[in-house]
Design a protein around this nucleic acid. Structure first.
Lengths: 353, 353
DNA sequence: TTGTAGGCGTTATCAG
DNA sequence: CTGATAACGCCTACAA
């Protein structure tokens, strides 16, 4: 591989001049410039990112730390980040934490030795990154958290408008006539799960509906969590006529639980999820969901990082992305328009009063 | 950040000694060793991967180039690679090509300047990496291709046993009594698609069944491709009673097309896919599929790379991973046990001869 | 066993 | 505008 030295020799100039041409650091006369560029082309020279990084105390690498690329929501996020990074000359180092805070810290510490230009983190379940992030920031390396936020986070953020998304979904169910709404939230120490719950509650309150405490179940953000919590909800009397799931994986579990209980969706129970994963379209019934753009989450994070790299040192940015409601077959008005009082317990309908 | 110099000063030894302690390069007396290690701990020193890489002409980074992390089959592969890399002290740089060969080459060329310890590539649709891979190999950097292989590939490979997987799936359908089997393959210039077709044909031939040319359709590896090809197949007379889809995304399209045609799966048409994605379990009917481990594909690739890094210079390794058949609800015996001769055209059954 | 010095490929600083 | 030179942090002969 050709080095700058080779270029200098071929072009008959000094090292410094080559560097100046390549980086536009100082004015260089046109003929010299041309000679250098010519030499670069003829050798297909590429500057060593390592040497450059060592010298500049900063590489063209962005670290991205996520719980698990295998979780269907995250690939889009990573893709968004990679695209935005690549088109600006940056590369992405990907790290999975499995929601293990220790592993997260390990990644955070070890990435430092690569002198990344910035870091994107989707924090693990119980996460406190204050110390690490601060130490990165001290050397001018941006750290932006996306999707959910760690405890006491004071840096840049990009998140979906979780509360409003949940609000819109709940509102939709209420407008359809549902009065007994339940929710299965994700783990409550995750900010996004909490925000979604808040949005749900806000809609309920605004409609002056009651919310029994047992109508709020907490689960892990996966199918199994959704299924077992839904199993509980479906055995309550009165049975909820609609369930807002904290995410689509939970919703998947809810659909399964409904089938297992011998009930039908949406006739007996309406279900609406969050994330609008690809699979929401292929379930049966097709799942209604609050759509958020993982891709944009990732690409926006990189954009913030780029601003920081280019010198922005202002206060932390907090970008909130819009969500939209995707209506599909998993929701319908409740069976009776007045099922609230003495609702169907089991499969038989209660007689009207 | 502490450097080796700091350690040397604190421990009261020279730079070289510190290096020797850290890398076990030369014998160091126990007391000195201890002092150095103590200093390392007290400063929480971490060696600069950049400086080390520059010096060694090799970093602890593995480049992974894939078509698109957003495609549901690849995350597991990436995860497998990352786990295996991480637990051996390596990091993963992830690159998406969108099946664009030019982008693939760009990644390949630009990654070089990071002096990666190795490369994992899932080649793009039309791919010829001979030149690039050779130039990497010349400097001792391994390149292993997984899942599918580029034209004239001569390096290390890890693939699923695509042919046998397809064979097993087809065999299963035949044993159920199907005689009119069709297939929708992925793009035929992809080696995995081709192998699967070969396995399909082998089973057909072995059972002495006929295979009309129009029963073999080529499609892109996605739902839309599957749907439109299935649309064709379902209008053929005689209509196939079973379809082997080149992958699960295609199978998804097939299921949709069957519904759209007013037919039922599996009663009218059996469907079996390939990959056994998570979503295969949630379709209705649940999709039967040939299961392969993307995770193992990735982790095995890294293992090969590690061997190369540690000095193995033998001939190219070709590792083939087993597949297994997952039977679910999307397959059943054909409606009539003897539908072969003059099969059902449209929805009405042809009278026996 | 330990220390010294040169260099990996860049960039940045300073003279000229 | 151009050229020399000193780092960046580490590794590795080679010398002591």
């Amino acid at each position: 591989m050709a080095t700058m030295k080779d270029i200098a020799k071929i072009a008959g100039v000094s090292l410094g001049t080559v560097s100046n041409v390549l980086n536009g650091t100082a004015g260089v006369s046109e003929p010299v410039r041309r000679r250098v560029l010519q030499a670069v082309r003829s050798t297909s020279y590429q500057p060593s990112q390592l040497a450059r990084g060592l010298r500049r105390v900063q590489t063209n690498v962005i670290g991205m730390i996520i719980p698990d690329i295998t979780n269907p929501f995250f690939p889009a996020t990573v893709r968004g980040a990679e695209d935005q990074a690549f088109s600006n000359g940056y590369r992405l180092i990907l790290c999975n934490t499995d929601n293990d805070h220790a592993k997260e810290l390990a990644h955070l510490n070890e990435l430092r030795t690569y002198l990344p230009a910035g870091l994107i983190v989707i924090p693990s379940t119980f996460s406190d990154l204050t110390v690490q992030a601060r130490s990165y920031r001290e050397v001018g390396t941006g750290v932006v958290c996306i999707d959910r936020l760690p405890k006491d986070w004071e840096g840049d953020t990009v998140t979906a408008d979780n509360q409003n998304g949940a609000y819109k979904a709940t509102r939709q169910l209420i407008e359809m006539g549902h009065k007994q709404l339940a929710t299965i939230t994700g783990p409550m120490h995750l900010t996004n799960a909490l925000e979604r719950l808040n949005g749900f509650k806000r809609a309920i309150k605004e409609a002056k509906l009651k919310l029994a405490p047992e109508y709020v179940q907490e689960a892990t953000f996966d199918k199994q969590g959704g299924a077992s919590s839904a199993g509980l909800l479906l055995r309550l009397i009165p049975r909820p006529t609609a369930i807002f799931a904290g995410n689509d994986m939970i919703a998947l579990g809810v659909l399964a639980a409904i089938r297992d209980a011998g009930l039908r969706c949406p006739q007996d129970v309406s279900v609406i999820g969050f994330d609008d994963l690809e699979l929401a379209k292929t379930t049966s019934p097709a799942l209604s969901s609050v759509s958020q753009s993982g891709y944009q989450l990732g690409s926006t994070a990189v954009s913030i990082l780029l601003e920081r790299i280019r010198g922005y040192t202002g206060p932390a940015k907090h970008i909130v992305l819009e969500t939209s409601l995707k209506l599909r077959d998993s929701i319908a008005p409740p069976a009776s328009t007045k099922p609230a009082r003495r609702a169907a317990a089991g499969n038989h309908r209660a007689p009207r009063r």
